[in-house]
Design a binder for these strands. Structure first.
Length: 266
DNA sequence: TACCAGGCAACTT
DNA sequence: AAGTTGCATGGT
């Protein structure tokens, strides 16, 4: 399947820190999502996928006009202009809430390489086999049900460190309906964030990642160490980040944040 | 060797 | 309410 789309750069999305399941291979990428593993190739005016399912258009947020969003911010300040120019192929993916919750719990005080390896270990150890591509087996991210009997120690063995107990508790809380990841879709941005923060291991930053990357809430503006550095060095903001970013970058703060993160971390 | 990485919960003041 | 501290682990 060929998807025509400007503002879609595979490498930029893979390196943007919103997903940890885009794998760079020789002349293409392998993307694991939507209970599938696909081969994705960059074209000059879009991408080619070896899969016909229309879910990928939603996953890649194809119907949203990112050019219009960038136009909205154009000229606001030099740093954001440069960031949008540098990362103009980034899109905000529509990812699975459970997978996003688990991977961003792992992300806390961690680095992208190790997050990626932990997510791979969780999938290979506990997820459903999907496909073999060029001799590599790909597994789906496990469901809560598949993780029901997984112990704190088994999580630890995936390299997640002290976050093991948070992952375990999160799975149990979902299975026990302390939180319903489908039902909370109807909540407001603020209520949704608060609902997620009831889970151990999810603070304000991780909750913002989840509402942005899994619930398409662009009010979510994750402030991590890189964004703090950007705000400090280029906007003169040392504290009260929240107050500044919520007014300055609205109404697509989360999208602007992705450009800033990607450019600031280069 | 110390410091850092898409922070958080628990504790202290 | 606001500030401080410990935390697994691999990379630099």
């Amino acid at each position: 399947m060929i998807i025509k789309c400007n503002n879609l750069n595979i490498k930029q999305i893979a390196d943007s820190g919103q997903t940890f399941r885009w794998y760079e291979r020789k002349d293409h990428y392998v993307v694991v999502a939507n209970h599938r593993a696909v081969s994705m190739t960059q074209l000059s005016d879009g991408i080619e996928l070896d899969d016909e399912n229309s879910i990928w258009k939603h996953y890649l947020d194809i119907d949203r006009d990112y050019n219009a969003i960038m136009t909205h911010y154009k000229g606001k300040d030099d740093f954001l202009d440069a960031a949008m120019d540098y990362g103009s192929g980034i899109r905000i993916l529509n990812q699975d809430p459970f997978e996003t919750i688990m991977t961003f719990i792992i992300s806390a005080n961690n680095n992208i390489k190790r997050i990626t390896s932990s997510v791979l270990a969780l999938s290979n150890n506990f997820g459903t086999y999907l496909k073999t591509i060029d001799g590599v087996d790909y597994y789906d991210f496990p469901t809560p049900e598949q993780l029901r009997e997984v112990s704190v120690e088994s999580f630890r063995n995936c390299g997640v460190g002290y976050r093991d107990k948070y992952l375990y508790g999160c799975v149990q809380d979902i299975l026990n309906k302390k939180i319903d990841l489908e039902a909370i879709k109807s909540l407001s941005d603020i209520e949704l964030r608060q609902a997620l923060m009831r889970l151990k291991g999810i603070g304000e930053k991780v909750a913002n990642c989840v509402i942005l990357f899994a619930y398409a809430r662009y009010e979510g503006f994750p402030v991590d160490t890189w964004i703090k550095k950007v705000l400090s060095e280029h906007y003169g903001i040392e504290k009260d980040h929240k107050i500044f970013v919520e007014s300055y970058f609205k109404p697509y703060g989360g999208i602007a944040q992705q450009y800033l993160f990607f450019y600031g971390r280069r």
